[in-house]
Design a protein around this nucleic acid. Sequence first.
DNA 1: ATCGTTTGCACAAACGTTTGCTGTTGGTAA
DNA 2: TTACCAACAGCAAACGTTTGTGCAAACGAT
Lengths: 317, 317
Amino acid sequence: MLSINPSTVSRALSDHPDIKPETKEKVKSAALEFNYQPNLHAKYFRQKSSGLVAVILPEFNMFFIPELMDGINSVVEASGRSIIIFFSNNSLEKEKEIINHCLCWVVDGVLISLTENTKNIDHIKILKDADIPVVLLDKVLYQNDFPTFTIDDHEAANNATSYLIKKHKTKILGVFGNPNLEITKKRREGFLYALDENNINHDENNVIHITDGKGEALEERIKECDFDSIFTMSDELLLICYSSLLKLNLYPNLMSIVAISDGKLPYSLYPNVTHVKHSGFMSGKLAAESLIQLLLKKSTENAMVIKTELVILNSVT
Amino acid sequence: MLSINPSTVSRALSDHPDIKPETKEKVKSAALEFNYQPNLHAKYFRQKSSGLVAVILPEFNMFFIPELMDGINSVVEASGRSIIIFFSNNSLEKEKEIINHCLCWVVDGVLISLTENTKNIDHIKILKDADIPVVLLDKVLYQNDFPTFTIDDHEAANNATSYLIKKHKTKILGVFGNPNLEITKKRREGFLYALDENNINHDENNVIHITDGKGEALEERIKECDFDSIFTMSDELLLICYSSLLKLNLYPNLMSIVAISDGKLPYSLYPNVTHVKHSGFMSGKLAAESLIQLLLKKSTENAMVIKTELVILNSVT
DNA sequence: ATCGTTTGCACAAACGTTTGCTGTTGGTAA
DNA sequence: TTACCAACAGCAAACGTTTGTGCAAACGAT
């Protein structure tokens, strides 16, 4: 149209110094006028990259993931890339498939939260071989081959539990999720550590794992044993505990609650729940930032611990 | 490697009838052995498509979106495509940018839930011009240029409210979100319609709009006026109402609640909340299915109404 | 033995960009 | 004048796949 070579157009649009301002102006205004949209497949194909960051999640739970995605998105978008999202449905097979698919897409980088069935990360190494940076977050394994973003689960659980103890609670039930997850193990250790440190007797009744999303087992346990408080490792479980305690007419008067939480739900429950805040937004943001650093070939720390803080509200009497 | 022409390899891998089984076998096993991953940028570049379905969301709320994404994902994945996800953060400008970006990606189709500031859909028409199918869902406008998936908001609100009335509630507070949203208007109309139909007097005090995510205004209103029940148009608002009523010590004994809900939260609250179920999963699934039909050049209905049902639990006395 | 048809594969073009290289012009210094 | 350099833009190759076309070999029917 302008009798200008495609190469010149390309350089004009990307502000290459070889092109004089006048030509750039002509090209840019024509591009605007005719609403020129560069074909990204052609671009990334030629460039052997993709402008895509893959986010692989085991599931789409309602508490942590939305905030996490928000954090990831803020960073990825600012880097001029887009998010291609996959769900492994907690299936290791699917996880492997997805990772292969990431290769096909020549993604710039991968943010992954592992399946509860993922016991080692060999299948992720093919990404490393392909020189695609990977950052693990939330549900991770600590094998130190990849940067890993989590909170100090042990400490968070310890802090929350210790607060209960400080408030003279001694008969504490720890409520946990899937016992196979690294995250569960660490938090359970932190919980038990707090009990031990304070010389509080405990047995297997002090710990319960809820994997069906229902409160029945919990209510059974509470009726059987004599607790004065609950520590719960996540928002999902917090909601279950909360409604169970209301049903049994124990909260807030007869039992206290603390949780590890993203920090939203505690304010929606009454009385507001004291919790150790684990911000999903910050987790996503920091992990994504680390990934961007990596793919710019800058190095980052290998294991980042996201700091948590105890937020004291009104759920402990 | 096998001294076989790329074209033959391509056809072999896609089971083209021109290629004899023996050759196919050779190619496929070699592909497997050397872990061949086709470059999707090259493929989609050549094919002038993309294997991508864009999902554009105004925000990532914790109640509806996770289920919605799950539904969308199930369909998109089954169609062999991937999801590229964008957030407009409720900004119309951003929404426009994203839509342009979809053109650059030559996406196969677009699923979009509109910004609360989107008053018309002209900016979406450029997708239509580019022959990219679009399906609106959840937060929509009814301009009939695009297939649109929602529930019958009027009916859902009417049903829920009528149930309260049937249970002899007459002093009902309707709790709504952003008054500019089409979804809010329709549900408010349905709510008021139920009151009118049953000859229940009402004024502006019977309706409240909560847009700050907090319960203070609600609690004020409740203290000022004399209500016996609440209708709430969404899960987010339900949670706010719930904790406010608990704080005021009104639920479950002195006030009843009904909601329009995705159907998870009502079971997490105690007593379980009677609600009109609006499944996010089904919404996502049906909208995505419609989109896939469209991009296969099969036609679909233009406006689909997702059916809802009243789930009677224990929140109305 | 001849012709026509089918089978199976190779050849080459094309998709829209980017980028290394080449070439032209005009200016400046020797 | 010659030589050199800078500024600017065109040329052409390349990225990995798909797909229309061409062609040889194999086959079947006469």
